[in-house]
Amino acid sequence: MPIDRALLEIEDLNAWYGESHVLHGISFDVREGETLSLIGRNGAGKTTTLRAILGIVRNRTGVIRFRGEDLTVIPLHAIARRGLGYVPEERGIFASLTVAENLVLPPVVKDGGMSEEEIYELFPNLAERRSSQGTKLSGGEQQMLAIARILRTGANVILLDEPTEGLAPVIVERIGEVLQLLKARGMTIILVEQNFHFARKLADRYVVVEHGSAIDYFGASELDAKMAGLAEQLGV
């Protein structure tokens, strides 16, 4: 159940890739326990927003405040230790480690993370392949592993970038079920997703991103009224 308190505040965030100005003062906030979906066309700046929050895009200005703390001034590796878990679009499974090693690699940052047994119960495919090399997994299994390893750390905010991209419908459904479960457990989720039909089953609120800024904000209850406009804006 969402609690009305800003956990993560983004104000006037600008970011650059070299000379290219990608984020133009995007602002939004995320409340504890809610699922926020960033929606927008390809190249609108959704992924860059996540990467700028986590400091992967270093060239950025603006305010990124997590539980009142300015994230722009702390070292990159310390951001994950505050409890923000990132599942990147490319999944980032380590090639030379096995599934089990990939799973236990991230440091435990908070109490309350899932145990390895719980995770293997949630993802039986991973249990079966725990001694396989990370890169020998299918796309769906890599995605599950990328999510699974964040669950062990106790992170209570998860930033997901296109978790369903290129995956079979049955896998997409499974990932949807897992995210529903995390939501029910009170996890705060920031979801960047092209698959609008997937996002709408999960999201409590939406931020529409266009040309590197937020052009609209609305809650799940307003979605139906917004659908016609969104279809035009996003081409869904």
């Binding site: 992967i56 994950a80 990147p88 030379s96 440091p107 750390t153």
Partner: peptide, 24 residues
């Protein structure tokens, strides 16, 4: 060791290891 696995992770994908919380 787990320390060795972190080294290998840094070798494979340093930005990813950092974003997981390790000071590479």
């Amino acid at each position: 060791s787990p320390f060795g696995n972190i080294l290998k992770a840094i070798r494979d994908n340093e930005p990813r290891a950092i974003s997981l919380g390790y000071n590479a």
